[in-house]
Design a protein around this nucleic acid. Structure first.
Lengths: 228, 228
DNA sequence: ACACAGAAGAGAGCAGCGCTCTTGATTTAG
DNA sequence: CTAAATCAAGAGCGCTGCTCTCTTCTGTGT
């Protein structure tokens, strides 16, 4: 039933949200490694074992936070895509990229949670897949719009990768040339390379003007996928 | 003194190495999160407190492993660079990139240690900086050779980034045009975006033929820095 | 050749962790 | 109104990183 009919169901939802909020606060403060169920319980005035009524394990709680983080980032990306929907394709592209970077700088621990090392014995449940794809889909959307409106400069594609590109088109990038689909996936990964390096300190003593550097680099990515 | 003159000093070095080896084995088996000082001690038939004579904390042990991992990866990259020293610049470039990818696939947990989320409070000590730069320097070397031998197609560089590029040239990329230096740093970060996405599972259900895709993408990176 | 400072290991112990199981209270449903 | 489901709490297990103390050993200067 979509309506929570009892006071109990409502309370359950509220407590679940409160747990996730407290956990997210700790996550932002200390990072995923130091997120402790007992500390979350303390903050809520509960006892640690009570949390197990809501999350079967610490990793399950982390998984819930992972999904939320993906959604939060995805929402930021989609908002940026829609905010500049009239602009030139390259500007829309860089707008989304800058939204991703901005979100990452604002939520470094959550970014580390989803794009850093996988935490436990590692398994990404099916639930995360949809949320994890939102940034990529936002980028695909921009490229598709540009393709339909003005055409793209199609990057070269070696013959051995053509089937791969056609599969990508069929599975998640409809109405986009296969050459572009392949380039898009590469640019998508490369975008997070740029963001991750800045966030995790690899750019220390290497890049000073991070913002200008990033804008320049993602403009290059846009050209790489055929945007003009 | 470069020669450890006492038997004691020699024993100390041997035990230190044994600890790191055992720790590395556990790291490869379980990942950094589950690396436990007590388990390392057990494996060596010592008691946990004895390890503190060699490493002042678990994080210090991790730092030692980080440096070793950087050096191991850097050595792989340099070996690849030198193995194909006569080949065309683009092939040398892709050779080094593939060495990086190969090392990462062979040592996923160590890769996660150095390019994944940084650990708790953790500030990268000065000691890591040299080792962390080796891959980048290998790439720079290839581009410099190509520049001196045959010239490069210089990528465009917006005016606001010119000082940045000149600083890069002065600090770690001598004899390379500033345009190329900036493009090089971007390509360096993007390379690890590609590797990280593959390793951390972001390419699941997205890229099938990982090897061909990677080769194609890093060829694109090579073109981006001006190699032909 | 010997005595001694310093180094190394053992052991106990502290506080914290994730997680399980049991117990008693409270709410919901039949 | 009673039976079933739900939930908070408490005790406890085995693990963790780390500290402190005590004992043994050993390399070295006299």
């Amino acid at each position: 039933m979509s309506t929570p009919q009892g006071a109990r169901a409502r309370a359950r939802i509220e407590v679940t949200v409160a747990i996730k909020d407290a956990a997210r606060r700790q996550l932002a403060r200390e990072g995923a490694a130091k997120l402790s169920l007992r500390a979350v319980a303390r903050e809520l005035g509960m006892v640690s074992s009570a949390l197990y009524r809501y999350f079967p394990s610490r990793d399950e709680l982390l998984t819930a936070l992972i999904i939320d983080a993906y959604d939060s980032l995805g929402e930021a990306a989609e908002k940026a895509r829609d905010a500049v929907s009239g602009a030139a394709p390259v500007d829309r592209w860089t707008g989304v990229c800058e939204a991703v970077r901005g979100w990452a700088l604002a939520h470094p621990h959550e970014y580390a949670l989803i794009y850093g090392s996988p935490v436990p014995g590692y398994s990404a449940p099916e639930t995360t897949v949809r949320a994890a794809g939102r940034v990529g889909l936002a980028l695909i959307g921009i490229v598709r719009d540009a393709h339909e409106r003005a055409g793209l400069a199609e990057p070269p594609l070696p013959a051995e990768l053509r089937p791969e590109g056609e599969r990508m088109v069929a599975e998640f990038a409809p109405d986009v040339p296969p050459e572009v689909a392949v380039a898009l996936v590469a640019a998508w990964a490369q975008l997070f390379g740029l963001v991750g390096f800045e966030l995790f300190g690899q750019f220390n003593k290497v890049v000073e003007d991070r913002e200008a550097f990033f804008r320049h680099a993602v403009t290059g990515l846009a050209h790489g996928v055929g945007l003009r």
